[in-house]
Design a protein around this nucleic acid. Structure first.
Lengths: 191, 191
DNA sequence: TGTACATCAGTGAACGCGCGTTCACTGATGTAC
DNA sequence: TGTACATCAGTGAACGCGCGTTCACTGATGTAC
C-alpha cells in the first residue's frame, strides 16, 4: 500500500465510503473502527490519521450517506425522464430498496438512531431532511403542496422501516404495496 | 428489601417496566444491565435470577412496550368517546408524544433498531404491528380500508421519528402538523 | 405453635471480551541543495 | 539528476474502560416435623 499524500486522500475516501454503507447496515452504534479499517485493508491505528474520533467519522459518514441518497434519487430521475410521484414511489417503496439498506436511503435506515443521537448528528440529518422534503415538493410541482410532500416523505420512510421489521415476506410486501398504491392514487388526483 | 417469592415476582415486574421505558429512550443497544438494576435499587448480579440473558430481557421488554402501547391507545379512546382518525392523529402526532419517547409508541422509538435486530425481536414487533394495523382499520371502520390503515400507520410512525430528528423546533412541529392535517382531511372524506 | 433445616433471592467481587484511543516505531515519500 | 534528510502514512502492541456474565456467599423465607 502506498504512503503518498494522494494515497492518503484516496484512503480517506475509501474509509468514508465503507463507513457510509456500514452505518446504514449496522446503525450508528454498529460500526467498529477495527472492522471498518479491516474492510479497507488497513490497520485500526491508522484511523486517527484520518479522523479525530469515532464520533467525527460517524458524523462525516452520515452526511455522506444522506448526500449520496439525494444524488442517486435525482440521478435516477434524470436517467428515465422526469421524476413523478409514481417513479419516486416505485423506487423508494421497492423490495430492492427494502432488502438493501446499506445502499438505500439513510432516512429509512438511520432516522430512529439519529433521533436519540447527539445534536451534531441530528443537525446533519435535519439539514438533509429539509432538502428531501423540498425535492418531493418539486416532484409534486404544486406550490401549496409542502404539507403533502412532508406527509408523503414520512409515509415512505415509515413504510420502508416497518417493511424491514416484518418477518413474514408477504406481510412485508403488503406494507410496501399499500403505501405505493396510496401514493399512486394521489399522483393521479394531482394530474 | 424483601426476599420472598412475592417480592421476587414484584421485582421482575419492576425490572421489566423500567427496561421497557429505557428501551424506548435509549434503543435496543442502549440499555445496560447494571444501570437498569441500579434504577430498580438492586445489584447487577441479581439480574440473572430473573432473566436468562440480556437478549431475553430485551425481547420481553420490547413485547411489554408494544403491548402497553396498544393498551394505552385503546384506553385513551374509551376514556373520551369513540376513537376516530382525528383523535388518533391528535394524540399520536402530538408534541407530548414526540417529546416523551420513553412512554410513547415503541414503533416510533424502536422500529429502526428492530429492523436490523435478530429474528426474535423482529417477530415480536411484527406480531404487534399487524394488530396496530388492524386497530387503525377498525377506527376507519371501512372493510376495504386495510391499505389505507397501513399507509396511515406508516405515515404516523415516520412523522414522529422524523420530528424527533429535526433540531429546529418549528420545523419539527411542522412535520407533526403536516401529517395531522393530512389525516384530518382524510377523516373528513371518510365521513 | 415452635424449632431445625433447606431453599433461594439478592450481593458484590471477579472473569473475559471488544471497544475507542494512544504511541513508539517503520519505511516510503517529498524536499532541499 | 543525485544525494541526504525531514516528514509523515500506516503499523501493531498496549492502555483503560464498560460491558454481559459467573459464582461463592449471606441471610431471610419457606417447610417439615
Amino acid at each position: 500500500m502506498g504512503h503518498s499524500q494522494a494515497d492518503k486522500a484516496r484512503n480517506r475516501e475509501r474509509i468514508l465510503e465503507v463507513a457510509a454503507t456500514q452505518l446504514r447496515e449496522l446503525g450508528l452504534d454498529g460500526v467498529s473502527i477495527s472492522d471498518l479499517m479491516k474492510a479497507v485493508d488497513l490497520t485500526h491505528g491508522g484511523f486517527y490519521g484520518h479522523f479525530a474520533s469515532r464520533d467525527d467519522l460517524v458524523a462525516a459518514a452520515l452526511d455522506k450517506a444522506l448526500t449520496d441518497g439525494e444524488a442517486s434519487a435525482i440521478k435516477s430521475g434524470s436517467a428515465k425522464g422526469k421524476r413523478t410521484l409514481k417513479s419516486v414511489a416505485n423506487s423508494y417503496l421497492s423490495k430492492l430498496h427494502r432488502d438493501n439498506p446499506d445502499s438505500g436511503c439513510a432516512l429509512s435506515a438511520l432516522s430512529g438512531d439519529v433521533a436519540r443521537s447527539n445534536n451534531q448528528n441530528r443537525e446533519i440529518m435535519s439539514k438533509h431532511l429539509a432538502r428531501y422534503f423540498d425535492n418531493i415538493q418539486e416532484v409534486i410541482g404544486d406550490n401549496d403542496s409542502k404539507e403533502l410532500a412532508i406527509s408523503l416523505m414520512c409515509m415512505m420512510v415509515g413504510a420502508v422501516t416497518l417493511s424491514r421489521v416484518m418477518t413474514d415476506p408477504n406481510r412485508s410486501d403488503e406494507i410496501l404495496q399499500a403505501a405505493r398504491k396510496f401514493m399512486l392514487q394521489l399522483g393521479d388526483e394531482k394530474q
